[in-house]
Design a protein around this nucleic acid. Structure first.
Length: 243
DNA sequence: AATGGCCCCAACCGCCGTTTC
DNA sequence: AGAAACGGCGGTTGGGGCCAT
């Protein structure tokens, strides 16, 4: 049974049409009950996969483009504070996902580590064994102090917000507009954005034309008709899902 | 132009806590 | 109360793209 189900599930990179379909159904049904949403949408993907695709890529509130210096600093400081708590760190960086931060940290920590090691080699060259041991201990003590005590989270946030204010970036209620970072949208992102706005417009039209005496027939909803033809009693089905 | 190595990141996996029935 | 479903999280992997040779 499960094997048969798994056989039919698609894996690997998402196609543009899959993205489009997913965005449409999330706009209609909301970000919940991912397994059901995956079935209703007709996507041959697991609910988990749908959720991940939305959370890490399609969600319009996501920021694109390279990490800013402020973000970089916050990531490293919070990581020193909390360790690999990527989702926790991500909550402090609006528009960034845990996956993105995790990948970023992995890449850049290696580079920073290498750079630091290089510095140490240069600095320690010419010392005796005793001196090296002493220096190492000193370094470790300083590192522990600066990361865990002096850079508590409140300080980090305060500094981050202050710098953001200075640079004219608005961080209000945890949402930063991508335009505030001067990041241009890719054509694909624009398309996703267009899908969402198209659906929203269509949905409000549909709501207006809908008879409130619950005689809502399929014809009253003219959203993405090509998809609904596949699940003819979609509305009834979706209502039963969320009720 | 071909190729090998490296980097980056999207996607998957497995585990675990929470919610629902 | 307990089983099943769901959702979240951190770790890992695979493939595409870039660059040096």
């Amino acid at each position: 049974m499960d094997c048969k189900k798994e056989e039919t599930l698609r894996r690997g990179p998402w196609l543009e049409e899959e993205d489009e379909r997913l965005v449409k159904f999330i706009t209609l049904l909301g970000e919940r009950r991912w397994d059901s949403l995956a079935i209703v949408s007709g996507l041959k993907r697991s609910g988990k996969s749908c959720r991940l695709r939305w959370m890490n890529y399609l969600n319009p509130s996501l920021k694109r483009g390279p990490m800013s210096q402020e973000e970089d600093r916050v990531i490293f400081q919070l990581h020193a504070l909390w360790g690999n708590k990527w989702s926790k760190i991500a909550r402090r960086l609006p528009g960034r996902t845990d996956n993105e931060i995790k990948n970023y940290w992995r890449t850049h920590s290696r580079k920073k580590e290498e750079a630091q090691n290089c510095d140490k080699v240069i600095e320690w060259r010419g010392n005796t064994g005793e001196e090296l041991l002493h220096k190492y201990k000193e370094t470790e003590i300083t590192r522990t102090r600066t990361t865990s005590q002096e850079h508590g989270f409140d300080e980090v946030v305060k500094e981050f917000n202050q710098r953001s204010m200075e640079s004219g970036k608005e961080i209000n209620g945890g949402i930063c507009g991508r335009e505030s970072y001067g990041v241009m949208n890719s054509p694909y992102e624009n398309r996703i954005s267009n899908w969402i706005s198209e659906i929203s417009t269509d949905q409000s039209k549909a709501n207006l034309s809908e008879d409130h005496s619950s005689s809502s027939s399929e014809n009253n909803i003219n959203i993405g008709t090509c998809w609904f033809q596949e699940t003819r009693d979609f509305e009834e089905f979706s209502c039963s899902l969320w009720s």
